[in-house]
Design a binder for these strands. Structure first.
Lengths: 241, 241
DNA sequence: CGGAATTTTGAAACCTTTCAAATTGGGTGG
DNA sequence: CCACCCAATTTGAAAGGTTTCAAAATTCCG
């Protein structure tokens, strides 16, 4: 019998997938079984390598990961961050190659999720996960292309806040963000120096607190309004008969 | 009987899809039949609206389109460009909503492509199309996040060159680019003024010619090398035998 | 041919980067 | 529990790339 603590750590991934679409008991138990087999991977290790074959999808159970691309001259760009409940390497292409490297940002736990072939509800969940992932990529493009430094930071934090809230990893308006300002800079197309200055300004503006890897948004709704952010919607709610 | 000219216009889309994966004669004729029914849509019209339901996928047969997002304050960001052979609104999410607006950049012809359910090869083609589309989004993120203005322009033009070459719309190193510098700016996260200056510089550097909507790359290979570009690969080549 | 859209030019302002160096924070060993 | 070290954050000043605001020149199209 697992402890309450380890249960909680694993719950996030299940919570997230179940939030996407209603899951049958059989599906949930298949997922639980998979999650129970999760393996640890150290921070900085690669979970997937750009240009290499994608073996099987992995479910991120605990910790943070990220998709990254490295340029020949050393510049790097984080494409998006992955949090518990996110699935890595979902692809229906035969002999698919990874189009980006996925690295563990923190120590993580990853599991091999069940095949969706016999679980229609899980297939839907995977579809939705992919669609949301794509929507987040579009949001990232807009961030980099049309938002200034302050807006980029606020917008990304809001996205993370929304995602972590969904899987129960935010408490109130606070959540852990295990990212250095340098990683943040490489995600936001800025330098770490400038990220630092802009985070300080956000603090001065009273928009947030950020200490020891934990962020508290003063007023997420007001902040979203301030920068004109709207959360992604990929599916019409089911008709209520 | 169609004229050679109109044939050529329609061939691009078929050529592109067939380039993704080998297509059976039955699939090709289903596609041809669909393409023959293509409907015209005027430039600037929306083919898909952000937040609205996706009815059915559309195959872009002729002309250019683009995915766009508009910010509340009027700023806009082009997410990617669509050329003949690209499929719009591929999604396996039930009751899917569009996550971006798709507009016709030029006058276009769009068709309703065949369902993939009975044509396994077409299903593979669609998968590959989606995977390539995603790879292009990742490339766009890197462009905006880590390339400077000159590199962004060169990189995007190279991507378009590669794509148009694939479907037979490039002749030699030249191809039509029906984009104003303002649209280009909104795709590259720049201002049209700066795009203008940087295009002029690229001309002075001898990297390209650009007159009347037609671009000629002096030396695509050298240019790709110069900016460290590598084309996306989403699939391992099939084993020989 | 005329008018609108697009491209081009100039100068100044602005946001972000660069380059160092100082400071703080967290983790480890004594 | 303190000393020490490395990573991460913070600060300053100057340089740089990009934007802004106008206005002129050019091209496109009916």
């Amino acid at each position: 019998m697992r402890t309450a603590l380890s249960m909680q750590g694993h719950e996030a991934a299940l919570l997230r997938l179940a939030a996407l679409t209603p899951l049958a008991p059989a599906t949930l138990s298949a997922l639980s079984a998979a999650v129970a087999q999760a393996q640890p991977v150290r921070a900085r290790r690669e979970l997937l390598s750009e240009g290499r074959a994608i073996e099987a999808p992995r479910l991120l159970v605990r910790g943070w990961a990220a998709r990254v691309r490295q340029l020949p001259d050393g510049r790097r760009q984080f494409l998006n961050f992955l949090v518990p409940g996110d699935v890595i390497g979902l692809s229906d292409v035969p002999r698919a190659l990874s189009t980006a490297t996925v690295i563990a940002v923190t120590d993580v736990m990853v599991a091999t999720p069940p095949e969706a072939s016999d679980l229609p509800d899980l297939a839907v969940a995977y579809s939705l996960a992919r669609a949301l992932d794509e929507a987040q990529l579009l949001a990232q493009i807009v961030r980099l292309g049309r938002l200034n430094a302050q807006e980029r930071i606020a917008d990304l934090l809001l996205e993370l806040y929304e995602r972590l809230t969904q899987n129960g990893l935010a408490r109130g308006n606070a959540f852990d963000v295990p990212l250095t300002q340098e990683i943040l800079a490489d995600a936001l197309g800025l330098t770490s120096v400038h990220v630092n200055r802009m985070v300080q300004q956000a603090r001065r503006d009273g928009d947030l607190q950020w200490k020891g890897g934990r962020v508290t948004l003063t007023d997420p709704v007001a902040l979203a309004q301030k920068i004109g952010r709207q959360p992604p919607r990929v599916q019409e709610p089911a008709a209520t008969m």
